[in-house]
Structure formats: structure tokens, C-alpha cells
Design a protein around this nucleic acid. Structure first.
Lengths: 151, 151
DNA sequence: TTGCCTGCAAAGTATTTGCAGTCCC
DNA sequence: GGGACTGCAAATACTTTGCAGGCAA
């Protein structure tokens, strides 16, 4: 059984490659590289950030966009929207989803595992909606940036 | 006292014009037109949708963008992000904020006055963040679109 | 071998900016 | 009259698409 939520990055990597193959997609160097970054580093990352993290000259930025689309379609990655016109991607462990706390000054991202919106989705279903999902992002100034601002 | 939350659209319009003037901005035909739409129609609207709703030839699309920026800066409008790469704007009544339920099929938007995220913001403040805000959008398939799909 | 994947170039989409002329206050 | 506002054109930023060649399976 595939375990995308494994603690070990390599295990998540292997599980992802298997999912990719089973979905009828090919395993190529750029895709391997992207999954390597996504499974082992703390994201989410923009397409440009991901491209920079790949070995120099591994692929064209366009390939990053195309690979991310493929990975998103089979739910290996999740697309995030911080409202600044740039899409960011993070590895999807398949576990209970989480939300982000983004510092407006330095852009650092922390995860928040609690999700208060479950009740809200239930409410919306009662209003007659189906296939309910939601996006929730939290913004603020982190402790570090507050300290800097106060000199 | 200005009453942006007034029931009467004209009252909200007048209150908005006063806010605009007090903030040192000029009252021009395009701005009047935009506020007319925003205070009287149910949004949110993209810049393009707003431009289409203005009297034919009233202003250039660029002016819509610039005016919206000005209105947003003084909190007369609020910018929404539905994650599709297009920003939408709605009149800000200044009351307790609400969230949207967007139908993925037809794009219709309903408001949800309940906000479950207050507790979440509190939690994040306890984690050391200041000036905490959040964005929350809910997506689903509305009852009408479900009926059509089942045809 | 097949056809999915890639690189390069170009197009697309939403939004922003420069500058000269306009008009609100 | 002065400075904010506007129109037009061009630039910007991110992402997508077309097409010919390359490579995984």
C-alpha cells in the first residue's frame, strides 16, 4: 500500500512515483526532481522557486508548470493561493488538510493543523450545495518581524 | 455620521462619496459610476464586469483598476480572490465581514454571514502573530446546477 | 515503436505603469 | 491654477499553448 503520509521523505517519494506510474504518467528526471523537493522540503513553493531548487539546467521553467499540472490532477500536489497572483504548490500527504499562516513581511509560512471550517462545510451542504470544499489562508506579522519593526 | 451599512443603496452611495472626499480624493464620473454599481448590485465583480456595467464609454478599463485601488485603500471596497487569477471587488459595508459560497459550475455567489474563523485568528495571535487577518472562500455545486447535471 | 514529455518561442490574460493632457476643487 | 485623475499605449508578471524533436516504457 502506498503511503504518501509517511514520515520518511524517501518513502513518500517512492509512493508518489508509484502513484504517478499507476495514473499512466511517465517518470522523468524533471518529475523526479520536483517530487524530491516537494517531499523533502517545507513548502509551499511557487513554480519559479521549485525551478531554482532543481539541479542547474535540469529542465525548462515551462516543464515545471506542466509537471505541476499533471501532479495536481492526480492529487499528488495541492495548489495554494496566497492572494498575490502567484500560485504555490505543496506535497499532498492525503491526510486531514491543513491551512497556512503567512507572514506579510517576510513571507514565512507555518502550518496550522486545526481546521475550523468543517462545520462551515456542513452548513453549506445543508444549504443545498454538493462537493463542498474551501480555501482558508491566514495572514499576520510573525514574532520575528514584530521584533525587527520595534527596533 | 456616515452609514456605509445603510439598507438604502443611495444612502450607502452618499456615505461613500463623503468618505472619498474626506480621504482627499476627487469625485469623478467613473468613481461615481463604480460606486453606483457596487452599492446597488450584488457582487463581487471583476474589473472587467464593473467596466461593462458602467454607461457605455464612461471610462477606460485602466481607470477602473486605478479607481478600485483607490477605493480599496480607504476600505470602501474589499478585494476577493476566488483562486482563478481574477480579483473581484465588493462594497465594504464595514459590518462584520462575511464569506462567499461560489458555485463551480455557474459561478453564482452567495454570502454566508457566519464566520467560523474568529477563534482561529485568536489561536494564531497566541502563536505570536500580530495584525491577523484571513481569507476564506467556499466552493461547491449549487442546487440548480446539480438538478441540471442529473437532467 | 509509440506517443507522452520536453524545449524553445510565442501567445494569452489580468494588471500595472509612463506620460501628456484634462478637469475637479 | 494646481494637482489629482484620465486615456492611450506599452510594459509587466505569471502562466499557457504550438510545434517539432526526444525519450520512457
Amino acid at each position: 500500500m502506498m503511503n504518501h503520509a509517511a514520515q520518511d521523505p524517501e518513502e513518500r517519494m517512492e509512493a508518489s512515483l508509484e502513484t504517478l506510474r499507476k495514473a499512466g504518467h511517465r517518470i522523468t528526471a524533471p518529475r523526479r526532481g520536483l517530487l524530491k523537493v516537494l517531499t523533502s522540503e517545507h513548502g509551499p513553493f511557487s513554480a519559479e522557486e521549485l525551478h531554482k531548487r532543481l539541479p542547474q539546467g535540469m529542465c525548462d521553467p515551462v516543464t515545471v508548470y506542466r509537471s505541476l499540472s499533471a501532479l495536481e490532477e492526480i492529487d499528488l500536489v495541492r495548489r495554494c493561493d496566497f492572494g498575490d497572483g502567484i500560485y504555490r504548490y505543496e506535497f499532498n500527504t492525503g491526510e486531514h488538510h491543513h491551512h497556512h499562516i503567512i507572514c506579510r513581511k517576510c513571507g514565512s509560512v507555518n502550518n496550522l493543523d486545526v481546521c475550523f471550517a468543517d462545520g462551515l462545510e456542513r452548513l453549506v451542504r445543508q444549504m443545498g450545495y454538493a462537493n463542498v470544499t474551501h480555501t482558508l489562508e491566514i495572514f499576520g506579522t510573525c514574532a520575528g518581524c514584530q521584533a525587527i519593526a520595534q527596533g
